[in-house]
Measured scan of single mutants.
Amino acid sequence: QVALSRTQVCGILREELFQGDAFHQSDTHIFIIMGASGDLAKKKIYPTIWWLFRDGLLPENTFIVGYARSRLTVADIRKQSEPFFKATPEEKLKLEDFFARNSYVAGQYDDAASYQRLNSHMNALHLGSQANRLFYLALPPTVYEAVTKNIHESCMSQIGWNRIIVEKPFGRDLQSSDRLSNHISSLFREDQIYRIDHYLGKEMVQNLMVLRFANRIFGPIWNRDNIACVILTFKEPFGTEGRGGYFDEFGIIRDVMQNHLLQMLCLVAMEKPASTNSDDVRDEKVKVLKCISEVQANNVVLGQYVGNPDGEGEATKGYLDDPTVPRGSTTATFAAVVLYVENERWDGVPFILRCGKALNERKAEVRLQFHDVAGDIFHQQCKRNELVIRVQPNEAVYTKMMTKKPGMFFNPEESELDLTYGNRYKNVKLPDAYERLILDVFCGSQMHFVRSDELREAWRIFTPLLHQIELEKPKPIPYIYGSRGPTEADELMKRVGFQYEGTYKWVNPHKL
């Protein structure tokens, strides 16, 4: 086992960053958080920038500027975001240094004079007029057009580079997404736009490419001749908990499936790229999406959770019991969808996408189930092999396979070949997804960000279904809070070829 401390991990990262040409360590950078008073800024962006600063992973002359409508001070920003920093008493001095680099400007999102004030403020910072500028839009999409237009007109660096990070949702359907994309691309070049999907920053999602293309053993079996089906799962054990009003506007397909799960599907299904260059990788992902037809209604199961009468606390409440959810809402909190990649490698292999709230566990994984062994000599005792990439929690890679049961006879039983990170790298604290992705933006690497043509294809696949749901308002199937979801989803999976045995229990190697 390799035991690495946080300091050692960050030392390795620093070495990698400083050796590259793309990370300008000594240049002045300004990180501007648009929507600095909001939840995302408070819980994710400010803490992430602090962790990067604490670990010495930001360029040395980096300033952080918050911008929002609320009249706040840096002290206010500190008060609301610091509880999420997880700072230790030993880091007190470092924390003071961090907040000394912070400033805040209040202004409207659609007022040109406010942006001119913001620009004057940035120019007044040390070497601010020639600094590289990175704008993070932690804002609702309704203000994107006004904000990007004003940034472009008043706040661009004339000497350094300018980059803009856009948070999902990128529209509600193909038409609104196209409108937003066309607007942003009329102001910024594609190499300046970073559409963030934080799932692409997760260690195991990034590991998929290495697993596939750096190991000879997987190449020959990664196709329709050997793989019976692919299941991509995202499960949350909690409901909307008072935030249903926002969720109800989008629903589970827009929230998770059309982005996170579809991105994971691309990494499983794509061909080997010409290189690890950002556009070479994204070219292959677009090719996969172009091979997927629009979702067919007979390959869809929609569910909505109801309270568990035997549960406790939140578990007793259904989705419609959330006071922020519109009365009688038919918005799905669970969806199972089957897609097919219609190309030579994957023809006929079902890709089953499942996601839901208020389920029995927290889990995100990719599961490849292989065909049955031909010419069975073990009297149907063999179960199908599976390769599982567990994204969260407890990152893991393992192969479910058959071995001989101890004893006199040739009785096979299920076991696993474990390729888990935790076994080799004991207690290594890896940077989280937002840390990686923000560092990628500083480096100018777009590999783990969504390109406009990729986004367009993703919406093309799901828009007809979303429009049909909005028009017909089908009643989702009720499922109990804390269950596996509607049984109809299991029946759909069985119908397209997935075999669920229920006889195997994964042993978490992190707890051995």
Rank of each mutant, 00 (worst) to 15 (best):
L320I: 09
E457I: 10
R384C: 07
N343Y: 01
G328R: 11
E271V: 04
E488F: 07
N277F: 11
N427S: 09
L471Q: 14
Y504L: 04
V301C: 10
F409V: 15
G356M: 02
F351E: 02
R345C: 09
I352A: 01
N385D: 11
F449R: 03
E365G: 04
Q296G: 12
D440N: 09
E413P: 02
Q392F: 06
D321W: 06
Y481V: 15
D372E: 12
K317G: 13
G497E: 08
H379P: 15
P474V: 13
V300Y: 12
V397W: 07
I469K: 06
K426L: 10
H467S: 11
Q369E: 02
F334E: 01
R456D: 05
E365C: 06
F370D: 03
Q446F: 01
V349S: 03
K287F: 06
S293W: 06
V441Y: 00
T463R: 00
E488H: 08
M270G: 08
L359Y: 01
F378K: 00
E454H: 04
V337P: 01
D432P: 10
V306H: 14
K494Y: 13
H371M: 09
K383N: 13
K357M: 01
F378Y: 10
L417P: 00
P486R: 02
L439H: 12
K363A: 05
V450E: 04
N299P: 07
T333R: 03
V281K: 04
F498W: 12
P309R: 10
V288R: 03
Q258E: 08
G313C: 11
L368T: 03
A396H: 04
K475R: 15
P431T: 08
P350W: 01
K426M: 09
V496N: 14
L353P: 03
L267F: 05
R451Y: 03
V388D: 01
S278K: 05
S275H: 04
H260R: 04
E361T: 08
V268F: 07
K290L: 05
Q369S: 05
Q296A: 15
M408T: 05
L353M: 09
K475E: 15
N259W: 02
A335L: 01
C291R: 13
P406Q: 07
K473R: 15
D321E: 12
G485W: 02
I480T: 15
E395A: 11
G307I: 00
L368G: 00
Q380H: 15
L261V: 11
S278D: 06
R436G: 07
T487M: 14
K357P: 03
F409K: 13
T463I: 01
V388Q: 01
T420V: 07
V450S: 06
V337I: 15
G328S: 13
K494Q: 13
E416L: 00
N360Q: 06
H467G: 13
P323Y: 11
D283G: 10
K405W: 09
I253P: 00
Y398T: 01
F409T: 15
I377H: 07
N423K: 15
D372R: 08
S293F: 06
Y500K: 06
L302Q: 10
C355H: 01
E365F: 00
S445L: 15
C382D: 10
T276Q: 11
E413I: 13
M270L: 09
T330M: 14
A358E: 00
G444D: 08
R460N: 11
H371S: 11
Y500P: 01
E361Q: 08
D418S: 07
D283H: 04
G375M: 10
F442K: 07
I389E: 00
N343P: 03
K475C: 12
P273S: 04
K383F: 09
R451A: 04
E386W: 04
E491K: 14
N423D: 14
P406Y: 01
N259M: 04
V391R: 03
Y425R: 03
E312T: 12
Q296S: 10
R495I: 14
F378N: 05
E488M: 12
N423C: 09
V450N: 03
H371C: 10
K363D: 05
A269P: 04
T276A: 14
G444K: 10
A315I: 11
F334C: 06
L419G: 06
L492S: 00
N308A: 11
A332R: 03
E395T: 07
F351T: 02
L339A: 14
A335S: 12
D440W: 06
Q380T: 13
A332W: 01
E416R: 00
G356S: 04
Y504H: 06
V288K: 03
L387R: 02
A396V: 06
M402N: 14
Q381C: 08
D347L: 09
V286S: 09
Y398A: 01
S415W: 03
L387K: 03
K494W: 11
I469N: 09
D279F: 07
K473A: 13
N299G: 10
Q392V: 03
V300C: 14
P393W: 00
V286Y: 09
S415E: 03
I469Q: 12
T463G: 05
E312P: 09
L265H: 01
V397C: 09
T331M: 08
L262H: 06
F378D: 04
I292R: 01
M264N: 01
A336M: 12
